[in-house]
Design a protein around this nucleic acid. Structure first.
Lengths: 332, 332
DNA sequence: TTGTAGGCGTTATCAA
DNA sequence: TTGATAACGCCTACAA
């Protein structure tokens, strides 16, 4: 038979206060119909014993845990998306449970399902991850953050396509004959949308899109991409403007291009997406666009909380936040 | 009285398989002494019903949830520390529960205590947060990550003092008469240790430490600090070398110093701490030291897991990881 | 090898 | 206004 945990429970409080454990429950949960005097006695017993309500037992009987789960897969802006999610979840008095999912091995998904969470957030999920999730039996309300739309639940995301498109047009308007593209991580929905926006802008200008340079995230990846671009330049391909799928690529890009004698911005123009804080401070400052990842994360979490708490439609109808597209003052 | 949740339980599986719910429990938990044939029937019922073990009910009776809680407060390297923690926790088949604590308002602490977690990680906690934690009644095993030592539990951290000291000596050896310091966030233990190392090195060289420049984290803060340094330089103070408490300050520092005509590295030398990936790609590359935050996070989590799972002393004895001090090849 | 009984700490219902 | 009682879904101990 099970053992008592050692920490005091409602029964202990009840005994000390000379009431039933049910009355303790009423006091703890602020239910009406308890004589003030009794409530005071109970409260005294609670502090004297250092009693804290057992969330597990509560969850067992109420079928809600106050926990929100987040699947996450490393991608562009995952950190800021999660930071927004965390803030909203915390503001709602709930706790966030984070599981990092390896896209190649989505076993972590199972683990999160074993826990009782009131709702799920799929942060920057790949299509295959969503498929895995969708194939599972009964799962709690789910909201997709920066992922492909899927019957699993509503999607919340910024207009990456529009942002990339606008930046590409911006470069073309500056007189460049074409714009090259360093992509984001393979399998990333955000990266795919940004690439699509770049392609769309070129198509609108009647330009054949040059072969994109495979990228990812981070300055080291950007450095590798910069070397690839420099090689193609050396091979005779005219390269004058580059749109990087992510700001974090920029420092490495600048570095590699400079090493190859392609100084930014004199010989080559570079724009990024994401408005990372460092972008203003690079030399030269990176032209970029803010896609508001923190706001997206917060919004997604709030939509999920609405669903979980049965508040219908407060926020659910609008599927995407408009990006606050502010281009930083670049050198060109 | 409580309502059944709708999802199948052991009783449902048992009924379908024609056994008792106890036998189901045995099969699910891999206990011996079940006839293979019976086990197969149970397993068939499980898949057919899509049964999953209810972690809450399990936690209620076993007094262990499989959950590890992390308090976190925004600081230098919090992200990488957490990433290491997450990896180790996940590798152990457990789930991480993250709570961000506002150091000025540690109410989140209460929240995490309401949940049943098997162990706590205090990631980059302030002294006051530890005091709040320590004042609480019964709390689970705790490990402090990059925080001041405290009776709450073992501390794990890199040798920030040594790293800062070594870098300061490195600058002095290069002929600088003194080294200025841009500090990290106020209240940060990491920042305090790094400042102490800087002070120690100057003291060892018989130099009076110049007034440190208040900093924090991030390029924008670095930019502000750079302007402050430039002002002091303009006011006649000889400034030739700067140790930034954190790499993320560097880009902003470079930017502000360059704007003030103090080109790095010609007019002024700058070193950072933390070995962020972008540091290699700045112009010029930043001299820095790796303090292995991911490894520290992993190690701390493993120590906690040892404590939680009753594995004594596997790792607990050694309180700090040695930093892999590799200075990147800077320009000076 | 399998089933029965009891209890983990809480909430909900009903009666007093 | 308060208390008894029955779940929630599971695990441990013991009996069969």
């Amino acid at each position: 038979m099970p053992v008592r945990s050692g920490t005091p429970g409602m029964v202990d409080v009840a005994r000390l206060a000379g009431v039933s454990h049910q009355t303790v429950s009423r006091v703890v949960n602020g239910h009406p119909g308890v004589r003030p005097e009794t409530a005071a006695r109970v409260r005294a017993a609670i502090t004297s014993l250092g009693y804290r309500r057992n969330a597990t037992a509560r969850a067992l009987v109420t079928h809600r845990s106050g926990l929100i789960g987040a699947f996450t897969t490393p991608d562009i802006d995952t950190d800021r998306l999660l930071s927004g999610v965390e803030a909203a979840v915390r503001a709602a008095g709930r706790t966030l449970l984070i599981t990092v999912v390896d896209p190649d091995d989505p076993t972590g998904v199972d683990r999160l399902l074993d826990r009782v969470v009131d709702g799920h957030l799929a942060v920057a999920p790949t299509t295959s991850l969503l498929a895995t999730l969708g194939a599972l039996p009964a799962r709690p309300p789910t909201v997709i953050v920066e992922g492909p739309s899927h019957p699993l639940g509503p999607s919340v995301g910024a207009d990456h396509r529009g942002a990339a498109r606008a930046l590409t047009h911006h470069l073309l308007d500056r007189g460049h004959r074409t714009v090259h593209h360093v992509t984001g991580p393979p399998g990333s929905h955000i990266a795919a949308e940004r690439a699509a926006g770049w392609r769309a802008a070129l198509a609108e200008a009647g330009i054949d899109a040059p072969e994109p340079v495979p990228g990812g995230t981070g300055p080291d990846t950007g450095h590798a991409a910069g070397r690839a671009l420099a090689d193609r330049h050396r091979a005779g391909e005219p390269i004058t403007a580059v749109l990087a799928a992510d700001d974090t690529l920029a420092a490495g890009l600048f570095h590699a291009l400079a090493d190859a004698g392609l100084h930014v911005p004199d010989r080559i123009a570079v724009a990024g997406i994401g408005d990372r804080p460092e972008s203003t401070h690079l030399a030269p400052a990176l032209t970029t666009v803010d896609t508001g990842p923190r706001a997206v994360g917060e919004r997604a979490a709030r939509i999920l909380l609405d669903m979980v708490e049965g508040r219908e439609g407060t926020d659910t109808t609008v599927p995407a936040t408009a990006p606050r597209t502010r281009a930083s003052t670049g050198h060109w």
